[in-house]
Structure formats: structure tokens, C-alpha cells
Simulated assay, not measured.
Amino acid sequence: MNGAAGERALIDDVLADPVNAALAARLPSLGLPQCHLTAGCVFQARWNRLAGEPPGHGVNDYDVFYFDDADLSWEAEDAVVQAVGALTRDLGATVEVRNQARVHLWFEMRFGTHYPRLRSAREGIDRFLIRCTCVGLDVASGELYAPDGFEDLDNGILRPNAHFKQPALFRRKAEDYRRRWPWLVVAE
């Protein structure tokens, strides 16, 4: 299902998870620039519906990306992490917050590979290891960002992302997803 119908269906799937719904309702109050719910809490919502699993099944954490290049210090990002933590403490879920403007400062040290300086939160979403997982919900506008559409997501096809070629990491991530949703297909 592509186009507006596919977008609306995925938004409905995402918001069927009560944690996602609460995050989408609460995060705009913080005024975070380019704030998106993204990663597993978004794309796994579709897989859960397709597999007949309950909302939130298999979601390890709820990822929030924003982009603020005015202050690239850890202290500025940590202040946002703490604010989101206070806002979401009652949800009983792990919420991971990352300022995409500063990922290049720590990524290589943590993961051993170069990471370019990004210009937007969406560029961070564009760099997920698996193409169909490059999706995010802009919490201010309610719009879905899915540069590769929904066909592979709907069909459970896991392909490497040409924007971030990491074959070993791709395979590890794909197999992790297949453990939770065995019907997924790895297409290298």
C-alpha cells in the first residue's frame, strides 16, 4: 500500500501503540526542532499489524531524533534527554533521544566507522542499515517521512541501505528482526 493510503495506514499502526501515541502527543510541547519518532517504534508497528501481534511487540526502545546545531555539546543534548525523560517517565518505556546534529562527534568512537556531519534529522533516518526501516513520524506536523516508500516494509523485505553500507551490521540487524518476525525476508 503506497501513497496517501499507505502513509495513513502506517500512521494508524504507529499510533495504535499507546507509548507512540503518548510521545506524539507530548513531545511537541518541548519544541524540539525536526523532532521525529523513528526506528523500531515506527516500522515495527507495521510488522506487528501484519503479523497479528499486539502494538509494541518487539519494540526494545522508542527512538526520538531531533536536529539542533546551535549547541553541539553533550550538555545541551543531555538537557533534552532529561526533559524527555521527565515528560515520559510514567510510560514505563525506554525512550532514546539523539540530536542528529552531533552524531558525527561520537559515532566513529562508538562504532568504529566514519559518520558524516548531518544537515537534518531526516538525514539520520536516511542512514539506517536496512532500507525499509528508514521511516519517521514528524511529531509537530504528524507527517510521515519514508524516502523509500512502503513496498518493502509491507512485504517484509530487508535490503541493505545504499546510503550506509555496513554488510556485517546489516546481517546482524536483519537476523535480529527475523528472530522476532520470522516471515521477514533478507534480500542482499
Rank of each mutant, 00 (worst) to 15 (best):
P160T: 00
L118T: 07
H57E: 03
L72Q: 06
P160S: 01
L158P: 05
A51K: 06
A140W: 06
S141L: 14
Y145A: 08
L105I: 07
D71A: 02
D68I: 06
A121I: 09
R131C: 05
I157V: 15
W74I: 10
L144G: 07
D61M: 08
L137K: 02
L158V: 03
F65Y: 14
A76G: 10
H114S: 10
V84A: 04
L137N: 07
L91C: 06
T113S: 15
R89K: 14
Q100P: 02
V81E: 13
T133N: 12
N155F: 07
F111Q: 15
L72E: 13
G92P: 13
Y62E: 13
R102Y: 02
V84T: 08
F107Y: 15
L118I: 06
P116M: 13
L129D: 05
I157N: 02
S73V: 04
E123T: 07
L72D: 10
A83R: 11
D90H: 03
L87K: 05
W106D: 09
E143S: 14
H104L: 10
A101F: 12
F150S: 01
W74G: 09
V64I: 14
R102D: 02
F107T: 02
V139A: 03
R122L: 09
G92N: 02
D68A: 09
V59R: 00
G56R: 02
E143F: 12
D69T: 05
S141C: 13
L105G: 04
D61G: 09
F150Q: 03
D152H: 12
W106P: 01
V64A: 06
P160R: 01
M109C: 01
G156K: 00
D68K: 13
R119K: 12
M109D: 15
E143R: 15
L50N: 05
I125G: 06
D138C: 08
D63M: 09
R102M: 08
D152F: 05
E143C: 15
A140R: 14
